[in-house]
């Protein structure tokens, strides 16, 4: 039998975490499955649980001074309904899990679970999201790519909570997201692709590409993206195969119960190439669209 804490405020929650070695429970949709033991049996927890999902302080989203603040304890359904949440993120969330699970699972949980198949992660990486980590004593802000160190591994300390998700409020005219699952409804991701670009006068002014489930962490290559800035879309189109080739070594998927390494790699590379090739048909280029 484990004990449980139900803090009413963030401050109280942080105090509990600093005084006790606890397991933090948000929506529970990952944790309860990972710890499940069998029919009609309690899951396998050895430390007290701290239930943070009801904390109002962690359930707000606002847009402020060019930054979008997303509440870590907002459920996926909350985010789908919230006016401040940008459409590209809503599109991603709308394809996650199923309504009953979306009603429970939180954005913070998706981040802290740090699965390479975490569906919100490619967007957060692509948007240069920063995370606020707080303990009773201190707080720090880290970039999401520094927060996640490997599959299921983060730098979060046992006395810390993820208390803020800060996303620069950048808009892209071109957003393309593809999630590959085993089926259409309720599927874990075999591979995902997110491409975002801003094009002005036939020139790429900003471009971001992030890939999920094809490496131990989300794949994003700032250097390759930078190499495309300021170039004519026609050039990018012509060089699409060469640019795509640069992603090759970064994509290191595995074979598992859901797919094969070969499939994941080929489709990811094809999606990158296709995205680059269609930039010339996108808004801001003045050419006929595909």
């Amino acid at each position: 039998m484990v004990n449980g804490f139900r803090p009413r405020t963030l401050r109280e929650a942080l105090q509990i975490l600093s005084a006790n070695n606890c397991t933090v429970m948000a929506g529970g949709t990952d944790l309860m499955v990972q710890r499940a033991r069998g029919f009609s049996i309690r899951p396998d927890f050895d430390r007290p649980l701290v239930f943070i999902e009801p904390l109002e302080e962690l359930k707000h989203s606002v847009r402020e001074n060019g930054t979008l603040h997303l509440g870590p304890c907002m459920t996926l359904s909350d985010l789908l309904r919230h006016p401040a949440v940008p459409d590209p993120l809503k599109e991603i969330i709308g394809m996650m899990a199923s309504p009953p699970t979306r009603n429970m699972a939180t954005l913070g949980g998706n981040i802290c679970n740090a699965s390479p198949a975490g569906d919100t992660l490619p967007w957060l990486y692509a948007m240069n999201a920063k995370l606020k980590l707080q303990s009773a004593e201190k707080e720090r802000i880290v970039a999401i790519e520094d927060f996640i160190t490997g599959p299921k591994k983060t730098i979060l300390q046992s006395d810390e909570l993820l208390t803020g998700i800060l996303v620069p409020d950048t808009r892209f005219h071109l957003n393309r997201y593809r999630k590959l699952g085993q089926r259409k409804g309720m599927s874990l991701t075999k591979a995902s692709f997110l491409g975002m670009a801003e094009i002005s006068g036939n020139t790429v002014t900003d471009i971001r590409i992030a890939l999920g489930s094809v490496a131990p962490r989300i794949v994003r290559a700032a250097e390759i993206e930078r190499s495309m800035l300021g170039r004519y879309v026609g050039d990018i189109n012509a060089a699409a195969a060469v640019i795509t080739e640069r992603y090759q070594p970064l994509i290191t998927p595995i074979d598992d119960a859901r797919s094969t390494a070969m499939y994941r790699k080929k489709v990811s590379l094809d999606l990158i190439r296709q995205f680059l090739e269609t930039l010339s048909g996108s808004p801001g280029t003045g050419t006929k669209s595909e």
């Binding site: 449980g4 139900r6 429970m25 309860m32 239930f51 999902e53 359904s77 009953p100 699970t101």
Partner: peptide
């Protein structure tokens, strides 16, 4: 739970307070 569908098999009892 508060009018919304949830999967009770992965809902810890502590969450319904």
């Amino acid at each position: 739970v508060d009018g919304r569908a949830m999967n009770s098999c992965i809902l810890p009892a502590g969450a319904v307070c």
